[in-house]
Simulated scan of single mutants.
Amino acid sequence: MSHGHSHSHGGCSHEATDVDHALEMGIEYSLYTKIDLENTECLNEETDGTGKTVFKPYEKRLDHSKFVQSDADAELLFNIPFAGNIKLKGIIICGANDDSHPNKVKIFKNRPKMTFDDAKTKADQEFDLTRDAAGEIEYSPKVVAFSSVHHLSLYFPSNFGDDNTRIYYIGLRGEFSEAHYHGVTICNYEARANAADHKDKVFDGVGRAIQ
């Protein structure tokens, strides 16, 4: 009896581990919530606005009802601004298990409004991709190179042989920090402090210095 109980307990434990892993991945791959989607653009998308739909929760990576497909040829270029700074640690690219899956990605940091001509230049890093219909393969960018990123561009130049490239999910893992504007805060504080606490003569001197 005890042996049977042990097996049963092991099964429950294994299931719990799977659930925990999914939850953990969902938390780690939450950088999509920090994307400025309103200003995100995808060049050469067949249908306007569909490029933004691939940035979604990890648990919805296998939802094939939303995807982006290239239009004139196999190329796709994403320009992705963030609401602050990120440290990029991992990328998942999920497509179909066929020739429409992209076979390469070039990654550029902090170069807003990139064009296809810009994307032909040397990238900060690039990866040869494997077909990944399950969203299980993670590519790890160099953390040193991607430690302070406020804008990310992803260029997919080709696929495995289809006329058009299709992507269902792009996952981004890493750390996020708010953008701070210390200079503005300090300037405002000094102006208020001088006006309230200092004599006119001193304040005038500071005023002239600020001007």
Rank of each mutant, 00 (worst) to 15 (best):
L62V: 01
N85M: 08
E75L: 10
E41W: 09
D48C: 07
G90T: 07
K60S: 12
G171L: 08
D36A: 10
G84E: 08
P81K: 03
D99T: 13
A74D: 11
F160E: 02
Y155G: 02
F108Y: 12
L31N: 06
F146Q: 00
N39H: 15
F116A: 07
L76G: 04
N164L: 03
K34H: 13
G171T: 08
C42Q: 00
K56R: 15
D99Y: 08
E75V: 09
G51K: 03
D98W: 09
V54S: 01
N85A: 12
I91Y: 04
D132A: 05
A74G: 00
Y139G: 03
T50S: 04
L152R: 02
H150R: 13
F55S: 05
G49C: 06
S148H: 15
L154K: 05
L129H: 10
N85T: 09
T121W: 12
T47W: 11
G171V: 03
P112T: 13
V54L: 09
Y155R: 05
I86F: 00
F116P: 04
T53W: 07
R166I: 03
D98Y: 11
T115L: 07
M114D: 12
C42T: 10
H151P: 03
H151D: 10
D48T: 05
Y169F: 11
F78W: 15
T33H: 05
F55C: 08
A123L: 10
L77S: 05
M114Q: 14
A83Q: 15
N79R: 06
F78Y: 15
L43C: 04
N159E: 09
P102C: 05
K56Y: 12
L62R: 03
I137Y: 03
N79E: 12
T40A: 01
E138N: 00
S148W: 14
F67E: 00
P157T: 02
G84K: 10
D73T: 02
C42L: 08
E38D: 15
S100Y: 05
N159Y: 03
V144M: 13
Q69M: 13
V144Y: 13
I80A: 06
D162C: 09
N103G: 10
I80W: 10
I107S: 06
H150Q: 14
I86K: 04
F78A: 07
R131S: 01
E59W: 09
N103F: 02
D118G: 00
D162R: 11
K104P: 05
C94N: 12
N103Y: 05
V105R: 10
Y168C: 06
K34N: 12
K106V: 08
K52L: 13
F108T: 05
S70V: 01
N44E: 12
E45T: 02
A133Y: 15
G161K: 07
F108C: 02
D132Y: 06
S30R: 13
P57M: 07
I93Q: 07
F116L: 11
T40I: 04
S140R: 14
S147A: 15
I107E: 10
N85Y: 15
